[in-house]
């Protein structure tokens, strides 16, 4: 797995998510188009972890009580959370859907789902990151700190496949 690519995609997704969660900072137009574009980033993130996901799917019950299993379930929940944010966001869209000439009847439920899904997904993402904290620290050190230090051995955390 390409650590550098993963790291930058993850960082971009995280930064994008934080900015997208505050529409006042960007305005509604950028908020909506930005989050539509974020679907691509999110899917790339999942595709980059395809092997991890598939291996865990096939061996889920082999070592059931392992943090990777919790992270696996969290990944699915985060994915569902993001899809809920996207769909509910589109349903209350003021720029994207009208741009395509579409108009959906407004329902208050979509607003509620959008707010709830955003907050819950932020919480789940934080736990998802926490469960991979060793990887985050190792990747951060290797990519952003090591280039300014003397060369050293590859961090074993980056080489291991989380509990597979």
């Amino acid at each position: 797995m390409n650590v550098k690519l993963n790291f930058w995609v993850d960082l971009a997704t995280f930064a994008g998510f934080l900015v997208a969660m505050e529409p006042r900072a960007t305005g509604i137009t950028i908020h909506e188009w930005f989050t539509v574009a974020a679907v691509g980033t999110l899917i790339v993130h999942f595709v980059l972890h395809w092997d991890w996901f598939m291996k865990l799917t096939s061996r889920f019950f082999v070592k059931l009580f392992h943090s990777s299993r919790l992270n696996y379930l969290l990944s699915i929940l985060v994915f569902i959370g993001f899809i809920s944010i996207m769909v509910s966001g589109l349903m209350i869209s003021e720029r994207v859907l009208p741009f395509f000439g579409l108009d959906v009847p407004a329902r208050f439920a979509w607003r509620r789902i959008h707010d709830l899904a955003s907050n819950l997904t932020l919480l789940l993402t934080a736990v998802h990151v926490a469960l991979r904290w060793d990887w985050v620290v190792a990747a951060f050190t290797r990519i952003l700190i090591d280039p300014f230090r003397k060369p050293r051995k590859i961090d074993p955390v980056l080489a291991e496949e989380d509990g597979i």
């Binding site: 934080l18 969660m21 505050e22 932020l122 919480l123 993402t125 934080a126 736990v127 990151v129 926490a130 469960l131 904290w133």
Partner: peptide
């Protein structure tokens, strides 16, 4: 939100 995210991550 960043602070909130950091706090949740720290606790987790």
């Amino acid at each position: 939100r960043f602070v909130m995210f950091s706090v949740i991550t720290f606790i987790a």
